[in-house]
Nucleic acid binder design. Structure first.
Lengths: 239, 239
DNA sequence: CAGTGGTCTAGACCACTTT
DNA sequence: AAGTGGTCTAGACCACTGG
C-alpha cells in the first residue's frame, strides 16, 4: 500500500465533510492553526491540503477571515488534473462505455511526442462518454503505454474510476497534467457520440498526464460539448 | 513600494536567465538546496518560486534529477493567471487597441455576479486584440470597478501591460483567477476583430481575477482563434 | 553512493479582518 | 486586541536518480 500522505488524508476528510453537508456554502472551515492542532500536523501540511481543495473549487481563502466553502460550480472543473469525478464535483455523473481496453499500436499522427521505448511498447486504448443529467457532455479516449501494467486489459472496465483503479492495482498515481485546448467544429464521429449536429462548435482537449512512475505518461483526448456546461478552473499564486 | 517577496525576486531572476538563454532547453537549474544557499533563503521559499516557473511552463521538475528547463510551448499558456505577456512566453506578441479605457455602466447581462457596491460604483472598460507573428489570436475586453483607482481612465493605455500598470500605479496585484471556457461560433463582431469568417469555431473565456485588495475583482472576456495556437496550461499536485 | 525533489516539523513575523 | 491566512526560517527524513 502506498501510505497516503497526511495532506491527502486531510484533503479527503474536509472534502467529504463538505460534500456531506457538514459545512455548507459560506461556512468557514476551522483555521489552519486549528486544523494543524486537531490533526497534530504542521501548518504547512494543512496548507498543502487546503491548496488542493481550493484548486478543485471547494473553498476560497480570505486573508484575515479564513477558508470559506464555495458555491458549487456551474461549470465542470475538469481543467485541473484531478480525475473527472473529482472535478465534476457536486453534479451527478454517468459513464457510457464506447470501447473497452484493447491493445493497439500508437496512432500514427499522435498529438504528443513519444519516446522510443514508449512507442515500441505499444498502446492500450479505451474510450467512454460522460453524461450529466442525461446530457452528453464529453467523449474521452485515453491512451497509455502497454508497459508494466500487467493484465490491465483484462481487469479494467471503463465504468470504473480510471485513476482509482491505477492507484489500487498498480500504486500508480497521477501527479500532474499538461493540456492544450482548441475549438473545432464537431466531425460526424464526434457528433454521433455526443448526440449533436455535425459542425457544432466543441472543445477538444489534448492531455498528457505525469505519474509517480518516472517516464510513464498517459494521454487523453477529450471532446466536450460546452453548450450547457462550460469548463472551468482556478489558479492562485500559491499552489 | 510594496516590497517584493523573496520568492518573487528569485522567480524573476530565474525566468530572466531562461529567457536570456543562460539556461537552455534541457539544462538543469541549480538544485533547490543550492538556490537556497546562494540566495540565503529557506528552501521552501525556493520551492515557491520554482512552483510559479513550473505553472508558467518554463521548467519541469524531476524527482532525483532536478528542475529542467522545458521546451517553449507551441501553445499559449494563457490559462494561468499570469498576464498575457508572461503566458505567451517566448513568442513575439503585438497588441492592437480596440477601445481605450472609458467609464460606463456594467453590462446588463454580465457573466459574473456583482455585489451591490461594485454594481453601484460603475465600470471601466477597455478592449484590445492580441497578435502573434501577424496572426490575430485573441480579442479581449476587460472590466474593472470604478473604485479607488484614481485617474485610471486618463493614465492607462491599452498597449501597456495591464497588470504591470496596476502594480506600479496602485500597488494592486493579481493573486488568482477563476475562468470558464466554452466553444462557440464566431459572431460577426468577433469575426471582424479576429479577421476570420463568421461561424468559425472559437474559444470564449470568461474570467474573474482576484487581487491583493480584498473585495476588488476584475473581469475579462476573451475570444480566441485557436486555429494556429492552442491554449494550454499545466497543473501539478504541489502548487 | 551522493544528490535531487517531495513531505513534514515547529516555530516566527507580517498584513489584514473582525470584535 | 485577537484571530486569520501569507510569507519565511532552519532544520529533518524519505523515494528516487545517477554514477
Amino acid at each position: 500500500m502506498p501510505s497516503r500522505h497526511q495532506y491527502h488524508v486531510l484533503h479527503d476528510h474536509l472534502k467529504r465533510d463538505i460534500m456531506k453537508g457538514r459545512y455548507s456554502v459560506g461556512d468557514v472551515l476551522p483555521s489552519e492553526h486549528e486544523l494543524a492542532a486537531q490533526y497534530d500536523i504542521a501548518r504547512s501540511t494543512v496548507r498543502n491540503a487546503l491548496a488542493s481543495l481550493q484548486r478543485e473549487g471547494y473553498i476560497e481563502k480570505k486573508r484575515g477571515k479564513g477558508s470559506i466553502v464555495a458555491a458549487a460550480r456551474r461549470a465542470l472543473g475538469i481543467l485541473n488534473y484531478e480525475g473527472f469525478s473529482a472535478s465534476a464535483g457536486r453534479s451527478s455523473v454517468q459513464t457510457k462505455s464506447v470501447e473497452e481496453p484493447k491493445v493497439a499500436a500508437w496512432p500514427a499522427d499522435f498529438y504528443f511526442e513519444l519516446d522510443a521505448a514508449t512507442q515500441a511498447s505499444g498502446c492500450i486504448r479505451f474510450s467512454r462518454v460522460r453524461m450529466i443529467d442525461h446530457d452528453y457532455v464529453m467523449w474521452e479516449t485515453s491512451y497509455l503505454p502497454n508497459q508494466n501494467l500487467p493484465r490491465f486489459v483484462q481487469l479494467y472496465r471503463t465504468k470504473q474510476s480510471f485513476f482509482g483503479f491505477l492507484a489500487r492495482q498498480y500504486h500508480l498515481e497521477v501527479t500532474g497534467m499538461r493540456q492544450e485546448i482548441k475549438a473545432m467544429a464537431a466531425t460526424a464521429t464526434v457528433a454521433k457520440h455526443l448526440k449533436l449536429k455535425s459542425g457544432t462548435p466543441i472543445l477538444v482537449i489534448h492531455r498528457q498526464y505525469s505519474t509517480n512512475r518516472q517516464g510513464l505518461h498517459m494521454y487523453s483526448t477529450l471532446y466536450c460539448n460546452t453548450n450547457k456546461y462550460a469548463m472551468s478552473n482556478e489558479t492562485n499564486k500559491n499552489h
